[in-house]
Design a protein around this nucleic acid. Structure first.
Lengths: 186, 186
DNA sequence: GGCCCGCGTTCCGTAAACGGAACGGGGGCG
DNA sequence: CGCCCCCGTTCCGTTTACGGAACGCGGGCC
């Protein structure tokens, strides 16, 4: 399922120009010169200069050397404070809160919003994939399309999603929920 | 005097290897082959292969192309968020991922780590408060102290926490889980 | 069995990111 | 004024990340 790319110009939180500006801002906030930061971070002045001006496409190693010297996590220069919501479709908006990898399985935890008045169907996942949903608000009907489950606020649903499954809000209220996807290691 | 270069093959703190493993996990979770992901993301198979194996030092552009195709923010494949509010006990570390307030109740979603070898007890909450736990890794025993429940990876627990309740890891493995607290409006 | 297709890795020429050095510019100071 | 130091940019040779192609492998199919 190729997700519908927003358009030719994606939100692009990886804009080299924006990254450069954030680095320059962080450096300026510390009152450090470009030369000094380049030296202490162990990168070339040319590299840092081009990077701040957005005319280069830095490697992970270079970025890390600089952000470490600035004392900020790598993510601080990659995107604005707002995390990009991963839009799954017209009636469901899912935002990845955390992903977790274990030896046996990997997990993805989403915040889920389901708008009333529609149903959204997702194709089957691989065998063994399970979904856990806990409803915060509204009434949610979700699960396999031929055997959906229903839960109101405070309720919990679980199903194996190796079949087509859907999400729909019952009533007029938007549904808020958490969705946990569990992918067993194949 | 030349600055101490980070040795011959530094563990590469921005750890390309860990990044590669996360990408591989995300890809495997979606059941997509390396070849397919490389093609849809618009990068070479050689690039993606080397990247997943940690033998290359990707550029920002390459990383973004891949994470965008996977539908996760760039930060998802980098080191975890170290700057989120955490509640910390001797054996339990809880990180607040999101809180949500509804007309009927409010919710708090935590990532939970339970270290082996101890038990942590929380006093009773107000009546009506419920807790939902989904275990990612390890074996968790949690719930009311006089009637605890047990779940292994992939399992789900629920109890009403208007009585004293505890959390403990069974076995040697640290437990990772998500915890959802529901506080009904008083 | 032979065939084919897709898998992930390896090879290799090219493009570009890298660090060192050289450059022009602007203060501070005697 | 001349001098010196540090600033940020630009030049340049080296290194390396890049994608296309070729490779070996295994699984499905006839």
């Amino acid at each position: 399922m190729t997700r519908p790319r927003p358009a030719r110009r994606p939100p692009l939180d990886a804009d080299a120009e924006a990254v450069g500006q954030r680095i320059r801002a962080l450096r300026a906030a510390r009152g450090v010169s470009l030369s000094t930061l380049a030296r202490t971070a162990g990168v070339g002045k040319a590299t840092l200069s081009a990077l701040e001006n957005g005319t280069r496409n830095p490697t992970l190693e270079t970025l890390y050397a600089i952000t470490a010297q600035l004392g900020v996590p790598l993510a601080a220069v990659l995107a604005g404070p707002a995390t990009t919501p991963t839009v799954r479709g017209a009636t469901v908006v899912a935002t990845l809160l955390e992903s977790f990898t274990d030896t046996d399985a990997s997990y993805e935890l989403y915040r889920l919003r389901v708008h009333p008045g529609g149903e959204q169907v997702s194709p089957a996942h691989r065998p063994g994939v399970t979904e856990h949903v806990t409803v915060f608000a509204g009434v949610l009907r979700a699960g396999p399309v031929d055997a959906p489950l229903t839960a109101a606020a405070g309720g919990h649903l679980r199903w194996t999603s190796d079949v087509p499954h859907g999400y729909a809000a019952l009533g007029d209220e938007e549904v808020a929920a958490s969705l946990l996807l569990r992918y067993p290691r194949s």
